[in-house]
Simulated assay, not measured.
Amino acid sequence: MTEQRPAQTSAHLGTAPPRGAAAGAAAEVTTGPGEHIRTYPFDPSASVFGVGMQIGPMGTEGPWAGGVGLSRRVHRIDFHVLLFFREGPVHHMIDFTEYEARPGDILWIRPGQVHGFSPHDAYVGTALTMQPGFLPRAMVEATGMYRYDRPPLLHPGPDQLAALGPALEQLGREYLDTSTLPLSLHTSVLRHSLTALMLRVAHISAQAAADACAPQPDTTFSRFRTAVEQGFTENHSVSAYADELGYSRRTLVRSVRAATGLTPKAFIDRRVVLEAKRLLAHTDLPVGRIGAAVGFADSANFSKYFQQHAGVTPAGFRAEQV
Rank of each mutant, 00 (worst) to 15 (best):
R150K: 08
K265A: 14
G62K: 06
A266Q: 09
D149C: 02
I37K: 06
G231V: 01
K304M: 08
A259W: 01
G133K: 01
H12T: 12
G88M: 08
T2P: 10
T30Y: 07
Q54F: 13
A281K: 04
I94A: 11
Y175N: 08
L197K: 08
V253E: 14
W64I: 01
P264R: 03
E87M: 10
P314D: 00
D78F: 00
G52W: 00
G59V: 09
H192I: 10
V256N: 00
P6E: 02
Y175C: 14
Q216N: 03
L280H: 05
V273P: 06
H192M: 09
E98R: 10
L262P: 05
T180V: 09
F267V: 12
G67T: 01
F134Q: 01
F117D: 09
G231K: 05
S299N: 11
P6L: 08
D269R: 05
R271L: 06
R102I: 10
T30V: 09
I106M: 00
E244L: 15
R254T: 12
S47N: 05
I290Y: 07
G56M: 02
I94P: 04
V74C: 14
V189F: 02
G316H: 00
Q4V: 12
R72S: 05
S255E: 04
E35Q: 12
G172S: 13
R76P: 07
L168A: 03
E100P: 07
D218M: 11
R225T: 12
R73V: 09
L154D: 09
G316R: 01
P89F: 03
P286L: 09
P63M: 10
D78I: 04
A206E: 15
Q4L: 11
G62W: 04
T283C: 15
F84A: 05
T60Y: 11
H192L: 12
E87G: 11
A65L: 06
L252T: 02
A276C: 07
E229L: 05
D159V: 07
G32A: 03
L199P: 13
L161Q: 11
K265M: 04
T97N: 15
A7P: 08
S255N: 09
E320L: 13
R19G: 06
L164H: 06
P182E: 13
P215A: 01
P156E: 04
R72K: 04
L82K: 00
A25V: 15
L171V: 12
